[in-house]
Design a protein around this nucleic acid. Structure first.
Lengths: 121, 121
DNA sequence: GCGCAAGTTTACGTTTGCGTAAAGGTAAGG
DNA sequence: CCTTACCTTTACGCAAACGTAAACTTGCGC
């Protein structure tokens, strides 16, 4: 039998990730997450929680919610079925290029910060 | 004698960095850059050009213009004079922490992209 | 000295990402 | 049942980062 899956309320997740419930609902409005409903209340699964983490990671990197949705959608491929592989590979490569550029930018800035600190003798 | 410094018009820089003149003027409104004026026209020096590059780098990393201004201001320290070193070191450390977190996020996402691509066999 | 591209200011418009009431529904404890 | 804490939807508000249009001025190029 399957192990009982953990469940979360909206305010639990909000507190855990230090954001507001409003934000989480907003992400749902933007179709970035869609928790189960028990009556009117939202119930979040561990899988939903992971999605939220992905969203916040994207935010920290400066992606828009629309971009984040594109990225997240990559995770929801129908497992075996590859639904336009060439198109997907293109998308993935785009993401990768952006991230590599960001990493370059970060390394550059880190170096600059080192230099600046050096000037503060 | 000093070598003649290169000069740029607003539209030259706009074209070079693939942004609009409007954006550049906006950065000026927000005190991120302040080119020389020759009459009413703006004249950009190589130093201004570097500042613009810093701005765009910050943007690619998702920083707000206000944050970018803070970062840029670090470059304009009165050379020898250290004006509240402890405070500055704190600021620099904050920036560094944020960048290191971002680099972690990036590395995480890159790994995920690799895995996703693996599933597309 | 005229034309025309490129510059200027001023100001209102737009999108994104929530904040912040307002007005109420729901569930568990006493 | 009643309070209390937490949840819900609806909707208007707002700051950031420009877009865009209007209405001018400037300065080559001929």
């Amino acid at each position: 039998m399957t192990v009982a899956e953990k469940e979360y309320t909206i305010s639990e997740l909000a507190k855990e990730f230090d954001i507001t419930s409003r934000s989480i609902r907003h992400y749902e409005d933007e179709n970035l997450i869609s928790p189960e409903r028990r009556g009117t209340h939202r119930i979040y699964s561990p899988r939903d929680r992971v999605r939220l983490q992905l969203i916040l990671r994207g935010k920290r990197l400066g992606f828009s919610l629309a971009q984040i949705r594109e990225i997240i959608d990559l995770y929801d491929l129908p497992e075996g079925k590859q639904k336009q592989t060439t198109l997907l590979i293109g998308l993935i490569q785009e993401r990768r290029d952006a991230l590599l550029q960001q990493r370059k930018d970060i390394n550059f800035m880190l170096k600059e910060l080192d230099m600046l600190e050096g000037k503060l003798d």
